[in-house]
């Protein structure tokens, strides 16, 4: 091995190591670059300054990932719900398309026969059962629903102690079909 090569190899190596150390070292001295989000605290509306004491300079300007308060994006698929209006009415006709389209058998519709005022027999839902433990949040039920009866909310804290608690009935007690939805 050539002596010049040997020494220049050492110097080059040391230089590359120093460049690497510059990166980590510079982050060490820039605590406002910290991107950690403090989870349960950042759920609150009024984020207290001391939750972020180590990163007191973080105001979300340097990196896109920095956010003080957790922002749930509107389209986030957290949980399937059936929106009800203030008169406790929903749009679900009980047609069963969501049940058919669900790849996992997450949805089960128990329907009843109703007799309307003019004497016609009509299908309506008794229970719209949603088993969240089996849901893969593919969104096919919402997309294929002909009457837009289903939607996703962006709740995401679904931890429960018992798996049966994940089975939910989406239509509320005593709710009826919205007028004008067939």
């Amino acid at each position: 091995m050539n002596v010049v090569e040997y020494i220049s190899g050492i110097l080059k190596g040391v230089k590359s190591l120093l460049i690497g150390m510059k990166v980590t070292g510079s982050y060490f001295f820039r605590p406002w670059k910290i991107v950690t989000q403090q989870y349960p605290e950042n759920r609150k509306k009024d984020v207290k300054w001391f939750y972020f004491l180590p990163l007191w300079k973080a105001h979300g300007k340097d990196t896109p990932a920095e956010r003080k308060q957790i922002v749930m994006l509107e389209r986030f698929k957290g949980e399937l719900i059936m929106p009800h209006n203030e008169k406790n009415e929903h749009k679900c006709t009980g047609c069963g398309i969501c049940e058919m389209n669900c790849p996992n058998g997450t949805i089960e519709i128990i329907s009843i026969q109703l007799t309307t005022e003019d004497g016609k027999k009509k299908r309506a839902i008794d229970k719209h059962i949603y088993r969240m433990g089996m849901c893969t949040f593919c969104g096919l039920c919402v997309k294929t629903c002909p009457s837009d009866a289903l939607a996703f909310t962006n709740t995401f804290e679904h931890a429960v102690f018992n798996r049966t608690k994940l089975n939910k009935v989406l239509n509320k007690e005593g709710s009826t079909l919205m007028k004008g939805v067939e």
Binding site: T24, Y27, V35, P54
Partner: peptide, 18 residues
């Protein structure tokens, strides 16, 4: 704490002050 700051993290901050 040092490695956390180098890695853009906060490090231990739950048990006791800091």
């Amino acid at each position: 704490k040092i490695c956390a700051f180098m890695q853009c993290r906060v490090g231990p901050n739950r048990v006791g002050p800091f």
